[in-house]
Design a protein around this nucleic acid. Structure first.
Lengths: 230, 230
DNA sequence: GTATGATTCAAACGAACGTTTGAACAGGAT
DNA sequence: ATCCTGTTCAAACGTTCGTTTGAATCATAC
């Protein structure tokens, strides 16, 4: 390994990662066996442990190779907006568009498997597996902090806790929108599949509407939604 | 002889269901073994297959016993509103409150395990397992249809497809809000723990804001939009 | 050519999985 | 006491899991 970089085999690594990405999305981590992965990738069973060390390490690598790029693009989009603003606080819509627009752009990318990964990622936000969630949290720590700070500055009069909640809600709506297209079909069988290009404006309208909604009156005084069914 | 194994008094069935509910929520379906379930429940390994037939049947029963009640309450809440309206279309806020308010009421129920189940349910909306999703779709078919019809009548000028999407987004925000509290903590370590009573008004404001947001321009091009407000 | 290190391969490993078995135990009703 | 029915129990079933092994193959430098 003199000057050669991490370039290893011909394309065994990449084929394993691509196969695993699809299978993890379709069946989940636990239900996807090494034999399924290596079978679909057309490589030997031992190849995964040789190239990645273990199944868990393979899972991490599946996420890392995409998340690195995704979060880099997110930060770039945010910094581009900040450069335009020149020190002034950004408009919330710009911040939201920077974060979620990058996500949806990858969702629309069908040629490089980005769409598959985004669906996998959406499912993984609620993944029970502890080490997967721990890994995701580390990967997200910086970018989330940066966006939250931008939102704090953009909405100085809104309690930070409230902004945190709404960001949480927005993440949920996006994850579900991307990952749960099948679930949507289950709700309404007569539903023609859509290209993610049309999902983007729909989701963005919804997210901004939720973000700008009036604060709950609970801030002033506890109030319960009237739902008396007698 | 060494230890007096606490002779279990109450129902073995219920003990298995309660243990399985917690373990499924913590580890997921595939990662939760029969031995974990029976061990936590304090029953024999064979008890699950004796009482439920199989692990899959146990999963279904875990959901069925709670979903039956949940969806019954949802329909009751909707019908109560419809009775008050007396034939007139309901306001969207009432419909949303009927559907999601019941969910959050169960989330706030800590004494009967309802909160545990709601977190499990939130995670399961994006569950890859095919038979689980099929089962969920059947359980939800009627109640979703009823609520969608109510929304169609409440918003006659909004394209049905658009309402479907926004309902989808709302489901995502709620599921994530309930199931992903840990994820929220990962984003912001300094976060005082959740009190579902306070989650309710927060989420409701967000959902209604998203539901009433202006439609994306792409849709507006072809249709005139009227904004109904509550 | 041969040597050397990286990669692939078939085969096997022990562990854990869901499920099944047949005996043991319980408590009424006859 | 006996039978019956429902339930619990320890043990084992066959399968599949992730991982490991050691030899075969390939590529490149000597």
């Amino acid at each position: 390994m003199s000057e050669a970089t991490a370039k290893q085999g011909p394309d065994t690594r990449a084929r394993i990662l691509d196969a695993a990405e699809v299978l993890f999305m379709t069946h989940g981590f636990e239900a996807t066996s090494m034999r399924m992965i290596t079978g679909q990738a057309g490589v030997n069973l031992a190849a995964v442990n040789y190239h990645f060390g273990s199944k868990d390490a393979l899972i991490q690598e599946v996420f890392r190779r995409r998340l690195t790029e995704l979060n880099r693009d997110r930060l770039a989009a945010l910094e581009a907006e900040e450069a335009v603003a020149g020190g002034a606080p950004l408009k919330p819509s710009k911040i939201v568009a920077a974060f979620f627009g990058v996500s949806l752009k990858m969702t629309a990318d069908t040629t490089h498997g980005g769409a598959t990964f985004m669906r996998l990622l959406g499912r993984t936000y609620t993944e029970p597996n502890e080490f997967v969630r721990q890994f995701l949290a580390e990967e997200y720590a910086e970018v989330v902090q940066r966006f939250m700070d931008a939102l704090y500055r953009a909405l100085p009069d809104v309690p930070r806790e409230e902004i945190l909640w709404r960001f949480h809600f927005m993440m949920g709506a996006m994850s579900y929108a991307i990952a749960g297209t099948d679930a949507l079909k289950l709700f309404a069988g007569d539903f023609d599949d859509e290209d993610p290009t049309r999902l983007m404006p729909r989701l963005m309208s919804f997210l901004l509407g939720g973000l700008r909604a009036p604060l709950p009156e609970e801030v002033i005084e506890s109030r319960t939604i009237r739902r008396d069914a007698a």
